[in-house]
Amino acid sequence: MRFHARVVFYVIEPIAIRKNDLWFTEYQTNAMRLGLRITSILKNIKTDYQQLLVVETEEYGRALILDGALMFTDQNEFTYHEMMVHPLLSSHPDPRKVLVVGGGDGGCVREIVKHDCVEEIYLVDIDEEVIKASLDFFPAVSEGLRDERVKVLPMDALKFIKDHPATFDAIIVDSTDPVDFAVGLFEAPFYRDVAAALREGGMVVAQTESPFVNRDLLSHAFLQMGTVFPRMFLCWGAMPTYPTGSWTYSIGSLGPDPRTIRRSPSARTQYYSSDIHRASFVLPPFIKELLRANLSQ
Rank of each mutant, 00 (worst) to 15 (best):
5 A>S: 14
5 A>P: 12
7 V>E: 12
10 Y>D: 13
15 I>H: 13
20 N>C: 05
24 F>L: 14
28 Q>S: 14
35 G>M: 14
36 L>S: 09
41 I>Y: 06
41 I>D: 06
43 K>G: 02
44 N>Y: 12
46 K>D: 12
50 Q>E: 15
52 L>I: 11
52 L>C: 13
62 R>C: 04
67 D>W: 10
68 G>L: 08
69 A>T: 15
69 A>D: 14
75 Q>Y: 14
77 E>N: 08
78 F>K: 05
79 T>H: 10
86 H>M: 13
86 H>D: 10
87 P>W: 07
89 L>Y: 07
93 P>W: 05
95 P>S: 02
96 R>K: 15
96 R>L: 10
98 V>W: 01
100 V>C: 04
105 D>F: 00
109 V>C: 05
110 R>F: 02
110 R>E: 02
113 V>D: 01
114 K>C: 00
117 C>M: 11
118 V>A: 04
128 E>T: 12
131 I>C: 07
137 F>N: 11
138 F>Q: 05
141 V>D: 03
142 S>L: 06
142 S>K: 05
155 M>G: 11
157 A>C: 12
158 L>T: 12
160 F>R: 03
164 H>N: 15
166 A>M: 11
167 T>R: 09
170 A>T: 07
176 T>G: 09
179 V>F: 02
182 A>H: 06
190 F>A: 03
194 V>E: 11
195 A>M: 14
196 A>R: 15
200 E>T: 14
200 E>G: 09
201 G>P: 04
202 G>A: 05
202 G>S: 03
203 M>I: 10
205 V>W: 00
206 A>R: 02
213 V>E: 10
218 L>M: 06
225 M>L: 15
228 V>K: 00
233 F>V: 02
233 F>T: 01
234 L>E: 11
237 G>E: 03
240 P>A: 12
242 Y>N: 03
246 S>A: 13
251 I>V: 15
259 R>I: 05
262 R>A: 08
263 R>T: 11
264 S>L: 15
267 A>L: 15
269 T>R: 01
275 D>I: 15
277 H>E: 07
277 H>Y: 08
279 A>R: 12
283 L>R: 05
284 P>Q: 08
289 E>C: 06
290 L>W: 10
294 N>R: 15
294 N>W: 13
